[in-house]
Design a protein around this nucleic acid. Structure first.
Lengths: 205, 205
DNA sequence: GTATTTAAAGACCGTTCGGTCTAGATATCA
DNA sequence: TGATATCTAGACCGAACGGTCTTTAAATAC
């Protein structure tokens, strides 16, 4: 067991705002506006923090951004783990996974875009290893989960002949990230769903 | 025939720089850095223009950006028209089209990203109709060309059974735009090519 | 009570932003 | 030559940027 520290209460006034809630609100701003277009006053308004509190809690704008990005990634992977629940049939999970992207990339939802894709395009590959690592590991994590699900499907005999789970997983990841891009034009949901179905139907029996 | 205007030469010193070349150099800067992260001095350095000349020729930063975006789009569509040359077999054209994206989204090329996708994520859906129109019409133009090629393939009996050219075209567009996104992590070319092949092979006979 | 810690408000800092303007050189036409 | 038009170079502008710091109030432990 871990040895707890003495746990003496600190002397002064305790922190009165919820750090995680502030990260969530900041995430929303970065999400809709992008990193460079988000100014400090935007973040102060959204988090309802003073400049001093924000800098004490997060260091600087980039520090808060990285926290927000981590939250966004954690949310996405958590959602995936629910959709690809191993207790469900793999094809059901894959359909749920795609249906989630159809929902998030159609109409007004689509127009809002994706913090991760926006960050990849705006900040990745510009000598910021903290950003690059997050982007790279997210795609890898996503691909790994999809590949596992496809492997389960293959074992259950539900995959079309000759489909390699690893390659197909990469393909699906490219597809859903592409949905996020064209989703910025707010395509209608029926067409998006039909496109996703057309893809999956070629890979399952 | 069109009636030419009198065509009198203007009085003063003629323009001495190549406007289109300047647009091309500016395009390169926006491409690698994105809109907001590109500062005026970056553009002045790249175009080798003075502030005065740049503002006289393009109005403002946004005006120059729109010119650069138009150039980028025109280049992309021209390239597609070459790859999908109607005198070639449609499957050959589609393979060339995908091979081009494999090349542009692997390794260092991939890391550079795509001005159009970056613009879609950074600027689309933010009440700038000039940007929105360009992004939307580009995806539509691309989709139309791919759909036509798939239609030709279908007529030639080269498509797998039950493949709808219109839906499959949208799917391919999503896929290649997704390639641009994950391409920011500089994936290796062999894997990317295998992924593209795995997709196309499911849709052709 | 005192000491201590935090919070909000906002003044303040130097820098950079996009954009305008002037000065002087240069290149063309008439 | 003189008029005209464009060039470069860079000073200049107000606004906004990210970030620091001071002040004052409030909330806790002792």
């Amino acid at each position: 067991m871990e040895q707890h520290p003495p746990l003496r209460l600190p002397r002064g006034r305790p922190r009165s705002f919820d750090t995680e809630a502030a990260v969530g609100r900041a995430m929303g701003v970065f999400w809709t506006r992008g990193y460079h277009a988000t100014a400090l006053p935007d973040l102060l308004r959204a988090t309802k923090l003073s400049r001093g509190s924000l800098y004490a809690a997060f260091g600087d704008k980039r520090g808060l951004f990285l926290r927000a990005l981590d939250r966004y990634i954690a949310d996405a992977l958590t959602r995936m783990d629910i959709e690809l629940d191993p207790r469900r049939a793999p094809v059901v999970g894959l359909r749920a996974y795609l249906a989630g992207y159809v929902d998030r990339t159609s109409g007004a939802h689509g127009r809002r875009g994706c913090l991760l894709v926006a960050t990849a395009m705006e900040l990745a590959g510009h000598r910021d290893p903290e950003v690059d690592r997050r982007i790279g590991s997210f795609f890898k994590a996503m691909e790994t989960r999809v590949a596992a699900e496809l492997s389960r499907a293959k074992d259950a005999g539900e995959l079309a002949e000759g489909v390699e789970p690893a390659i197909a997983a990469r393909l699906l990841v490219c597809f859903v990230e592409g949905l996020r891009v064209v989703g910025k034009t707010a395509p209608d949901r029926v067409t998006t769903q039909a496109t996703a179905d057309a893809l999956l139907d070629r890979f399952i029996r």
